[in-house]
Design a protein around this nucleic acid. Structure first.
Lengths: 144, 144
DNA sequence: CCCCTATAGTTACCATGATAACAACAGGAG
DNA sequence: CTCCTGTTGTTATCATGGTAACTATAGGGG
C-alpha cells in the first residue's frame, strides 16, 4: 500500500530528485496510479471485511469458482494462482475451514478443497458489490 | 495488495458475474491496474527493505524532506500527510528514532521531528533507485 | 516391499497494518 | 490560577503479510 496522501507536484519531484535523470511528470503519474490503486484496494478490503472476509479469502473462493470444469482445487493449485506465500495460504485455508467457507474433501494431505454451500453463497452475495467498487459506472457518487 | 496472478478473461468475468449489470472489459482493466500497482509496490517495498527501510519510514523522510521552507515537522503534521493510523505512525517514529534516522528536537510531546544526518543520507542514497523503479525508462530490462 | 528424495504443507517467529482504550497536554472559561 | 475539554500521542490486542525451519507425503530405484 502507498500511503502518501498528497502527491508531490512536478516541482517537488524535480527538487527532491535534483541531479537525477528523471522525468517528473512520469514519476507523478506513476505515484498517482499507486495512490489510486491503494485507495481502491482499501475500499475493497473494507467492504469485504464488513462481511467477514479478507481479500485473500475472497480470492480463494474466486479462483475455485471461476474454474469452468471443476468445483474444487488442491491447495497447490490455489497457490499457483495466488501470489501469496505458502504459509499464508495454509493459515488462510485453516481459517476458512474453521469458519465454514470451505471443506477439504477426503483426508489426505492433498485433499481437494471445495467451497461449502455457505462459502458459495457468501461469494455470490458479495460479487455485485465487488464489481460495483471496481467499476462505479457513469453516475457514481463520490464520497465527499 | 491484490494477489491474483492471472487476471480473469472477459469471459470469466462475464460468467462469474452472470446476471449482474457489469462491463467485463472495464472490470478487467481495473483488475489489471490493481495487479500492476501491487507488483510495483512489492518491488518498491523489497528495494527499500533491502536497505533497511520500510515504505512508511521512507515516506516519513520524504514528507519532511520535500518541505521547501522547513527541515522538521511535528508528528501531527506528518500524520496529516500520510494515510496511516496514529498508532502506526507513533510506532514507526519510535523505530526510526531508535535506528537513528530521525531525532526529536526538544522534549515536549510536540517536539518537532527532523531527519538526522544518517537519515538524510539514507534517503538521498535510496532516491535514485526509487525513481528508477517508478519510471524504468524506455530501455529498461524486464526480469524474465 | 522398503527406503530415499523431492515437494507440499505446517509451525514458529517477526514486521506492519488496524481499532479501542488510556494518558498527557494545550488552551480557554470561570 | 484552576479546572474542563478536546486533541494528540501511546499502549494494549488483533489480523494478515513474510521467511526459515520442520514434518509429512508421494513416487521412484533398489
Amino acid at each position: 500500500m502507498f500511503f502518501l496522501k498528497d502527491l508531490p507536484s512536478d516541482d517537488m519531484i524535480a527538487r527532491v530528485g535534483a541531479g537525477l535523470d528523471i522525468d517528473p511528470s512520469r514519476i507523478r503519474d506513476r505515484l498517482g496510479a499507486l495512490r489510486a490503486a491503494s485507495v481502491l484496494m482499501r475500499r475493497i478490503e473494507q467492504y469485504l471485511a464488513m462481511h467477514g472476509l479478507s481479500q485473500t479469502q475472497f480470492l480463494v473462493l474466486m479462483v475455485i469458482e471461476r474454474e469452468p470444469a471443476r468445483d474444487s482445487l488442491q491447495s497447490s493449485e490455489i497457490a499457483a494462482r495466488l501470489d501469496i506465500s505458502r504459509p499464508v495460504l495454509s493459515k488462510t485455508l485453516a481459517t476458512m475451514e474453521r469458519s465454514g467457507l470451505i471443506r477439504r474433501q477426503g483426508d489426505g494431505r492433498r485433499a481437494p478443497i471445495a467451497p461449502t454451500e455457505t462459502g458459495r453463497a457468501r461469494f455470490d452475495a458479495l460479487l455485485p458489490g465487488y464489481f460495483a467498487l471496481l467499476d462505479p459506472g457513469p453516475d457514481a457518487q463520490n464520497d465527499p
